[in-house]
Amino acid sequence: MREVVLDTETTGFDPETGDRIVEIGAVELLRHVATGKTYHQYINPERSMPEEAFQVHGLGDDFLKDKPKFAEIGNAFLEFIGDAKLVIHNAAFDIKFLNAELKWMGLPQIPWEQAIDTLEIARKRFPGSPASLDALCRRFGIDNSERTLHGALLDSEILAEVYLELIGGRQPDFGLSTTVQDGTDGSGEAWVPRPRPTPLKSRLSEKEAAAHAAFVATLGDDALWLKS
């Protein structure tokens, strides 16, 4: 099962009033394990960056002016996420912005059913408790000391750790649950154990090997150990 943990940074709160995406960060998970494959892109919002947004993200007009516009990266972004489930904290916000940008490009919208909202999961697991990303990091003992500003890739990496804790702990079943339950590797193919790349060294001493050979010699030509 492929999942993409996703975060966006924007100029404000509403694309319908002119706010735009300025950064996208994403981390790929395969069977709840990070693969090391990421997506990260700064985006020229084609408008000035409000002061309050600059204070939150640290991204100013001078930095963003030579970055690609969303129209230039939209197809590559869709190719990266594919049909994977999108793990997002407060998914309604990010999906709203992404779909607005995709609509302006005439590209397919991301269906709501494709999103997994970690904010909703946290509120159900810990009703009445703070459910911000920082609060969940404190709850699970996840180091977010580098999160002095909101950055999409760093936030998605942190969210990946939070998500795995929310669903039962990091690498909750070591990727074995599908194999145990239905005999497949998660893609529908029959699971077959792979040989070791390097065979283990024998633990049998020379004395033990000689004693075994002498014992087998007493069993005659039909001994199982003599058959290939």
Rank of each mutant, 00 (worst) to 15 (best):
E51M: 07
P197R: 05
I21Y: 08
L102K: 04
G58W: 06
Q41R: 07
D173H: 15
F63N: 01
R47E: 06
T179R: 14
D173C: 15
Q55R: 07
H32C: 06
L30Y: 12
E165K: 04
L164H: 00
H150N: 04
A115I: 03
T8Y: 04
F126G: 12
F97C: 05
N144H: 13
F126L: 10
E23K: 01
V216I: 15
P197A: 08
R47P: 05
I116L: 13
S132G: 11
H40E: 14
T10K: 08
N75G: 09
L176E: 14
G183F: 08
Y39L: 02
I167N: 04
D221L: 10
L107M: 12
S177T: 09
G151W: 02
A91W: 03
A71P: 05
G18L: 03
E120I: 13
P50E: 04
V33F: 09
E101F: 10
L204F: 02
E120N: 13
E101D: 14
G169A: 11
F174E: 14
S202E: 12
R147M: 11
A71G: 11
K69L: 07
P45M: 02
P172K: 06
S187W: 05
M1Q: 09
E79A: 15
F70I: 00
G220N: 11
R203K: 11
V33G: 09
N99D: 11
P193A: 04
K85Y: 06
R203H: 01
D117F: 05
W104R: 15
E206G: 02
P45C: 01
I158E: 00
G151Q: 05
K37E: 15
I21E: 02
A213W: 01
D221T: 12
T38Q: 12
N90R: 09
P172I: 09
F174Q: 15
G36H: 07
E16K: 08
E206M: 12
D83N: 06
L102N: 11
K201H: 00
A71E: 12
T178N: 10
A131R: 02
A84R: 10
T148L: 12
E113T: 06
A211N: 03
T184G: 03
W104V: 07
V56S: 03
T184N: 04
A91I: 03
D185L: 01
D7T: 13
D222R: 10
G220K: 10
I81A: 00
C137L: 00
R125Q: 15
G25M: 02
E189W: 11
A211H: 03
I95G: 07
L64Q: 06
I158L: 08
A160W: 07
